[in-house]
Amino acid sequence: MNFPLFLLLTLFCYSLANAQVGINTLNPRSTAVLELESEFGDGSFGGFMMPRLTSDNLNSLTTALTSNDEGMLVFVTDLREVRIWNGSLLQWEILFTFNNSSPVANSIVISGTVRVGETITGNYSFFDGDGDPEGTTTFQWYVADDAQGTNQSPIPNATNATFTLTADEVNRFIGLGITPIALRGTSPGEEIIFYNTTPVAEEIVLWINEIHYNNIGGDQNEGVEIAGTSGTDLTGYSILFYNGSNSSVYDQIPLNGIIPNVSNGLGVLNFAHPGIQNGDPDGIALVNNDGVVVQFLSYGGTITANGGAANGLTSIDIGLTETELTPLGVSIQLQGSGNRFSDFVWNANITATRGTINLGQIFN
C-alpha cells in the first residue's frame, strides 16, 4: 500500500472512531460534526462551496423534500441566492441574495388643507422586495410652479413628514419627496416626489366683527356678524353661545353662506339670532368646520367653557357691554384699519351696520 493511500485511510478511520470529520485538519473540534480548515498544507487558502443548482434543479429537489430536511442549504446559480429549507412551512426561504433590490415609497399622498397656517402631512407605504425592514426614511418638501414640478425648489429646513404652510408658498404647488431607506440590503431607494394638484391658498382669516344682544325695551335685531377672507364658505361653521352662570352652551347657530368681497379680499356676513343672553358674563364662540374654535369672546367678564367646542378655553372679554338702556339701532363693533381681528378695537353704541363693513372700519 502506498503512503498517501495509507494516510487517507488512517484519517478516515480516525474520524469514524471519533464521530467527527475534519477536512484539512487532523484535530477537528470535539463539538463539531464537521470542521473545515481554510488553509492548505502549502500555505494557500480555500473556501467552502455549498451545493449549487439552477432554479429548475431546485424545483425538482423540492418535490423530494420533507420536514425532516429542514436546514438544507443550496446556492441557486441563476437567481444568485442562498436558500434554506423551512421544514415547518415546506418551502425555501431566501437566506441571502446578490440581487437585493432597493426599497420603494409607494402610494404617496398629502393630507390636510393646503392653505397658509395649516399643517399638512405626507403619507406613504414602504415596500422592499426582499422584505428588508424600513430604516430612517427621509423627507423633503418642495414648491413648484405647477403640479408637474416645474421650477421646483426644496423648502429650507422642511425635512419632516409634516409641514406648516406659510405665506411664501401662496399660489404655488406643494410637493413632498420621500427617500425610502431600509435597515439592511440595498439602500437608499430612489426619491419619489409627489405634488398636490391645487396651489396653496391664502390663510383664512375670520373673526367676530359686530355684536348686538340688548337694548331699551324689547330686544331687537340681535345677532352676530362675522368678517374674514372673501370666498370663505361658512358651511359647517357654527356660533356657540355660552351661559356665564354655568359656563355651558345654551344655544347655537349653524352657519352657511360665502363671505363676499366687500373690500380688499375681505367681507362680512351677519347672522341674526333672537334670544342672545344679556350677560354678565356671557360668551360667543366661533367654531370652524373641523370643530376647532376660531375665536371665543365674552362680554361682562370672562368664561372658562364647560363643554362644547370651547371646552376648557377661557374667553377674551371685549371690555364693553350693552344694557337695558342701550338705544335702539346700535351695536358693539370693531373699528379701525387692517385685515385681521387684532388690527381693530371695540366700540359701543355705534349705529348698527349688519351685513356691511362697520362705521369707522377700513379693510386693507
Results as ranks from 00 to 15, higher is better:
Ser247Gln: 09
Leu73Pro: 15
Asp317Cys: 04
Val345Asn: 14
Pro188His: 08
Gly41Gln: 15
Glu70Asn: 13
Thr198Asn: 07
Phe363Val: 01
Cys13Glu: 14
Asn196Cys: 11
Asn270Cys: 11
Val268Gln: 09
Asn24Val: 10
Thr159Cys: 07
Val293Ser: 02
Gly319Ser: 02
Ala285Thr: 01
Gln295Thr: 08
Asn68His: 06
Glu191Gln: 12
Thr198Gly: 03
Thr314Phe: 08
Arg354Gln: 15
Tyr237Pro: 13
Thr232His: 15
Thr119Asn: 03
Gly218Lys: 00
Ala105Ser: 11
Ile303Arg: 07
Val293Leu: 11
Asn106Pro: 13
His212Gln: 08
Val294Gly: 07
Ile216Glu: 11
Asn256Thr: 02
Asn99Ser: 06
Gly301Asn: 11
Gly355Ile: 01
Ser55Leu: 07
Thr10Met: 14
Gly129Arg: 04
Asn99Tyr: 05
Pro281Glu: 04
Tyr142Asn: 03
Ser337Tyr: 04
Asn24Ser: 13
Ile357Gly: 00
Thr166Pro: 14
Thr326Gln: 01
Glu225Trp: 02
Trp207Pro: 15
Ile108Met: 11
Phe363Tyr: 13
Leu34Asp: 08
Phe126Asp: 05
Leu325Gly: 08
Gln140Ala: 04
Gly275His: 05
Asn339Thr: 02
Val21Ser: 09
Cys13Phe: 14
Gly355Ser: 02
Asn59Val: 00
Asn270Phe: 15
Asn243Trp: 01
Ser111Val: 10
Gly228Cys: 04
Ile253Leu: 10
Asn349Val: 02
Leu8Val: 09
Arg80Met: 12
Pro28Gly: 05
Leu36Lys: 13
Leu26Asp: 12
Ser101Tyr: 05
Ile226Pro: 10
Tyr14Pro: 00
Ile181Trp: 02
Glu70Met: 06
Leu8Trp: 10
Met50Tyr: 10
Thr198Ala: 12
Ile84Pro: 15
Ile110Gly: 11
Gln91Trp: 03
Gln152Leu: 10
Thr235Lys: 09
Asn99Pro: 00
Gly283Thr: 03
Thr232Met: 14
Glu191Phe: 08
Gly291Tyr: 03
Asn243Leu: 01
Gly329Val: 00
Pro188Thr: 04
Leu359Ile: 10
Phe12Leu: 14
Gln252Val: 00
Trp141His: 02
Gly231Ile: 00
Val76Ser: 02
Asn18Val: 06
Thr356Asn: 03
Leu9Asp: 07
Ile276Arg: 01
Tyr299His: 08
Phe296Cys: 07
Thr351Gly: 11
Pro28Val: 12
Arg340Trp: 03
Gln333Pro: 03
Gly22Tyr: 14
Glu225Phe: 05
Gln277Ile: 08
Ile178Pro: 11
Asp168Cys: 06
Tyr195Lys: 05
Asp251Cys: 04
Thr77Arg: 07
Ala201Trp: 05
Asn311Pro: 02
Gly231Leu: 06
Asn243Tyr: 08
Leu7Tyr: 09
Leu16Glu: 14
Ser107Tyr: 08
Pro180Arg: 04
Leu165Phe: 12
Asp280Phe: 09
Phe98Trp: 09
Thr323Cys: 06
Asn261Leu: 01
Phe40Met: 11
Phe163Asp: 09
Asp168Asn: 14
Leu90Ile: 00
Ile211His: 06
Ile303Asn: 00
Met72Asp: 13
Ser102Asp: 14
Ala105Trp: 10
Ile226His: 03
Asp42Gly: 04
Leu313Asn: 04
Gly218Leu: 03
Leu73Gln: 13
Asn349Glu: 11
Gln335Pro: 01
Ser88Trp: 03
Tyr237Val: 00
